[in-house]
């Protein structure tokens, strides 16, 4: 598959950056408001979906090999779980305890501050990467299957 026309290719390579940026914004603003890693991760993956539609599958596979995407997903999930478990060792000995917010930060208590969310925003970034990488892999794997047109002829 060689992809679409040059117009689509040019536009989508510009728009890709914007979509990724918007995805990061969504992940980032999820710390205390209804956005977050899950929605933002879908944006990250959709930027690659756009690339795949415009340039074809091979280009995307070269840009983000599936093995790397799998590694990203594994590390992100591991980080998320590690943040949750680290709550057992800091502060109140509770699973998922938000120890940064409670204790160590100067800006704590000011709700709109990004940093005030403590471990939540770290966890959101991990979720965003995980969802982005996994959804990318799902789309990539779905695109390997194509309807067999030769059989009907």
């Amino acid at each position: 598959m060689k992809g679409m026309t040059i117009i689509v290719k040019t536009i989508s390579s510009w728009v890709k950056v914007l979509i990724v940026l918007f995805g990061i914004y969504i992940i980032h603003s999820g710390h205390l408001s209804p956005c977050g890693g899950f929605a933002g991760g879908v944006f990250l993956a959709s930027s690659y979906l756009l690339l795949m539609l415009a340039f074809g599958r091979d280009v995307v596979e070269r840009e983000l090999p599936p093995s790397v995407a799998l590694k990203i997903a594994c590390w992100a999930a591991f980080t998320f779980a590690a943040i949750a478990i680290s709550g057992l060792f800091f502060g109140k000995n509770e699973f998922f305890w938000n120890y940064i917010y409670q204790k160590w930060l100067a800006g704590a208590g000011i709700e709109v501050h990004f940093i005030a969310a403590g471990t939540i925003s770290l966890a959101e970034f991990a979720i965003g990467l995980l969802v982005g990488a996994l959804l990318f892999l799902v789309i990539l794997n779905l695109s390997t299957f194509r309807r067999d047109t030769s059989a009907s002829r």
């Binding site: 594994c74 999930a77 779980a81 057992l88 699973f95």
Partner: peptide, 20 residues
């Protein structure tokens, strides 16, 4: 034993294993 460990320990190791 903190109850979440029953879920968190296999989960965390499950995510580490594919990287080997």
């Amino acid at each position: 034993i903190p109850l979440p460990l029953f879920i968190a320990v296999p989960l965390i190791i499950a995510f580490v294993l594919p990287m080997f």
